[in-house]
Design a protein around this nucleic acid. Sequence first.
DNA 1: AAACACTCCAACCGCGACACC
DNA 2: AGGTGTCGCGGTTGGAGTGTT
Length: 256
Amino acid sequence: MGRTPCCDKTKVKRGKWSPEEDEILKNYLLKHGTTAGNWITLPHRAGLKRWGKSCRLRWLNYLRPDIKLGNFTQEEDNIICSLYTQLGSRWSVIASKLPGRTDNDVKNHWNTKLKKKLLATNANPTNNFDDSKQVFHSSSMVPKEEEQQAVYSPIQFPVPNWNSGFSSILDNNKSMVQHDEKQFPLSRFRQDYFKISTSREGSMIFGSSSVEMHENIDLAWFNTFEGFPMDDEIMGAGLWTQQSVLEDIDFPVTFS
DNA sequence: AAACACTCCAACCGCGACACC
DNA sequence: AGGTGTCGCGGTTGGAGTGTT
């Protein structure tokens, strides 16, 4: 059964917001807050000929007092790139790491600037990437078998400014292995993948991952950008490490 | 100067999640 | 338990602005 429309879309104004409408909405929300009633009835209460969703979007993206306008900084760019590599297009999560930025803002910035910038740098053959030192991993990045051909492709990649110096696989794997209480071989199989993002403006490679498949666990490595703060939340399950550390280990390994 | 191509971003749209009845 | 209403998210689009031919 379909849902009853929240309003008659033929009777509401659409398109660009005028300064007058902005003023009405802003004044109303500053006076009454966003929790007094719901967004659907807000336009009627505030005296606007808009629909609630449009009011909500306008407030969240442009009118609320803590919004940060202006160009993105290099540090913000780095954070966006790193988080996108790890999380994909979870713009609200990415925006939550950038005070004053909105998901729409971050999404637009990625689509119009960062994606192209990365594409350009990835295509530059003078950039040398030391694959043995600057890679870390996440178990959540392992591609499904059927996705490997379509979404990932094994290629060489030159990427500048990759991050380095992550936590040790020994430390991280200790807890993982203790949990499994098993001995396992770490280098049974390895394959490199690159995640490819597509849109109407083209496709690009924005990062890489390497996957190791083991008897009881899969590990995947991928790359991030210099300057990105690796806090616990971003590190997820704690399965991040330097590839070089892993490769120094004799296999199989037993952790006590 | 005009036509066309491209870029950028504000806004729209559909859908899933969740709360409430 | 299931229907309905609302919210929030992410993908997409419209169109203004800018660059190029």
